[in-house]
Amino acid sequence: MSIIVITILALCAIGVTSAIILYFVAQKFKVYEDPRIDEVEEALPAANCGGCGYPGCRGFAEALVKADNIDNFLCPVGGAPVMAHVGAILGHEVKAAEPTVAVVRCNGTCENRPKTNSYDGAASCSIAASLYGGETGCQFGCLGLGECVDACNFDAMYMDEETGLPVIDEDKCVSCGACVKACPNDIIELRKKGPKSRRIFVSCVNKDKGAVAKKACSVACIGCGKCVKECPFDAITLENNLAYIDYNKCRLCRKCVVVCPTHAIHELNFPPRKEKPVAADTKTVKPVVSPKAQTEAKTNDSKEETSDNK
């Protein structure tokens, strides 16, 4: 009997002593932390993707609490609603940011852009890009080794076996920008998602002269400038033999898509053009458009488009 009593007493004594020591130690080494950091972290999506540029959501929360103005901060995963919530916690006004999505600006499929050599080094785009100009005649385009896919934390990308190009799943893409950073050739861009996800962009980053670019890839932008002349809104600029569409100025009229001689300008998620059943093929979620279908669509388009313009 006494053994049990002694055991209980001893245990209690140890417990009390430990508690006292712990209390003083905790007092001694206490670090003050702004309680709002926890609150903000709670509001963030806890994806820890690093898309905001900070080490995880906790790091982002600390930066947000410290900042005087959170206009320049954006959680790419949570987007505007989360930032509004964070703003409410911290007592800041937050402007609504436009949703964006990642876009692959290269259509150099195996068919469009024939290989001239074969890469046999470590399977990393960065290594291939620092070694040489790539497997094809185009030294700007996609290297096809999938570093962007590896970088994606949201399972929103995969490599298309047939084309050798990465494909972005728009529904899953949170526009964190990890793939943009991962791509050594800066092919992927975050562009405005657009109304009903409709977007128009130049699917090429080749800065070579027209003839060289065209020889390397049949769907390269050759810098002819037709789209620049066609665009009624001055949204297209031409620099280093490469056209670029400013998504803030673009009004999605699709005129440039029609005039591009190499079909380098892509339109996404548009309804099929009227009176042209063939063009239905162009309605695809993938940025890669079957060139054949497009050519057919184009022939029809150009006729129609010219008559429209008159």
Binding site: A122, I127, S130
Partner: peptide, 9 residues
């Protein structure tokens, strides 16, 4: 293993 490939990078 492609040691030097990555080290060079």
């Amino acid at each position: 293993r492609p040691l030097l490939d990555y080290i060079r990078l």
